[in-house]
């Protein structure tokens, strides 16, 4: 990938990935000690996918996510404190404690929604893209789903219609090779995921989802394709989650369902997208170790402050349980 980035741009990508990682890792302790009870699906290891979109995204572009969407929200410019509070299911959360970790919804920044029904938000993304097309807006709608989502029929219905109407939608498949506990070889024939898009005649790419330079490049291509009215685009990001399907580890939280081989996990740890960018920048003398440490420190204190605020926030009141059924 022969795109050159300025130092400032690279450090910004780095900062966002570190912010996501630090935020995700900060949930481990409160989950294990029971302060956070709602199911939390950590994005650790997959940061380069969401952050790959950041450089070319506009505020008016929209995201729809899934159960593992904290990273998407952060990239979309979401409010970290509101998200952390929501994961504690507190009143100050972005959904007032009604949604929890799996429903990160904040229309003000274009995070139009996230939901854990696998592939359930893909068709919703289609609707946002339809609106853009109708109004001749140059905006893009991105649907995030995993390899598990490729088992759902609604994905195929949605690609078909998007292709038919040339909608500005990016089908963004984060292939982490596991559909909860089940390896991809047990859920799909041995055939590349990105070729799903080709069956409908749309531009389809496969990319190393742990290489931020490559994800950024493919996202640039996909976004500009959609802005030119030549969408939709399908992207398969090959990536890996460093934590359990839900929570820090599926093997210490009541079940023994993480059957991923140690060697496989170790192999992917070496491909950690944050470490890779660090190595790249240091090797090419783009920045110094000290600058990276400073970024991490700043991020750490930002995350720490969000937790402190969330922990002293109140839980929603029981007598308000019937609020918000209808507007």
């Amino acid at each position: 990938m022969k795109i050159s980035y300025k130092k400032k741009e690279l450090l910004n990508l780095y900062k966002q990935m570190v912010l996501i990682r630090r935020t995700e890792e900060s949930f481990v302790e409160p989950i294990l000690n029971g302060r956070i009870k709602c199911p939390v699906h950590l994005y650790s290891g997959e940061e380069a996918v969401a952050v790959g979109f950041s450089a070319y995204l506009k505020k008016e572009d929209v995201f729809f996510g899934n159960h593992r969407s904290h990273g998407h929200y952060i990239v979309k410019g979401g409010n970290l404190e509101a998200m952390v509070a929501e994961i504690y299911c507190k009143e100050d959360g972005c959904a007032g404690g009604r949604g929890g970790s799996m429903h990160i919804i904040d229309k003000s920044v274009g995070m139009l929604g996230a939901a854990p029904i696998v592939a359930g938000t893909i068709s919703l993304t289609l609707g946002a893209a339809l609106g853009f097309k109708y109004e001749k807006k140059k905006n893009v709608a991105v649907a995030f789903f995993g390899d598990g989502g490729t088992g759902e029929g609604v994905l195929f219905e949605s690609i078909n219609f998007a292709a038919l109407r040339k909608l500005p939608i990016i089908f963004s498949c984060e292939n982490n090779y596991y559909s909860t506990h089940l390896p991809i070889r047990e859920t799909r024939p041995n055939y590349p995921v990105y070729k799903i898009g080709r069956a409908f005649g749309i531009k389809s790419f496969q990319v190393d989802g742990n290489d931020i330079l490559k994800t950024t490049a493919v996202c640039e291509k996909a976004i500009s394709t959609c802005r030119k009215g030549e969408g939709p685009v399908f992207i398969e990001f090959k990536t890996y989650r460093l934590r359990g399907h839900v929570g820090p580890s599926d093997n210490i939280q009541g079940t023994q369902t993480d059957i991923r081989p140690i060697q496989e996990i170790e192999k992917w740890k070496k491909k950690d997208p944050i470490k890779r960018l660090e190595r790249y920048m240091l090797k090419n003398r783009i920045c110094e170790q000290k600058e990276l440490l400073n970024i991490s420190k700043k991020v750490e204190s930002q995350v720490f402050a969000a937790h402190q605020k969330a922990q002293i926030s109140n839980f929603p009141k029981g007598e308000e349980v019937e609020y918000y059924v209808f507007r």
Binding site: F64, K107, T121, S123, L124, G127, G153, S158, N160, F161
Partner: peptide, 16 residues
């Protein structure tokens, strides 16, 4: 494609 088309109507409604 009732599933996707209904979802599309919902997404469009959310988006304005």
């Amino acid at each position: 494609s009732e599933n996707a088309m209904t979802g599309m109507a919902i997404g469009a409604s959310i988006a304005g």
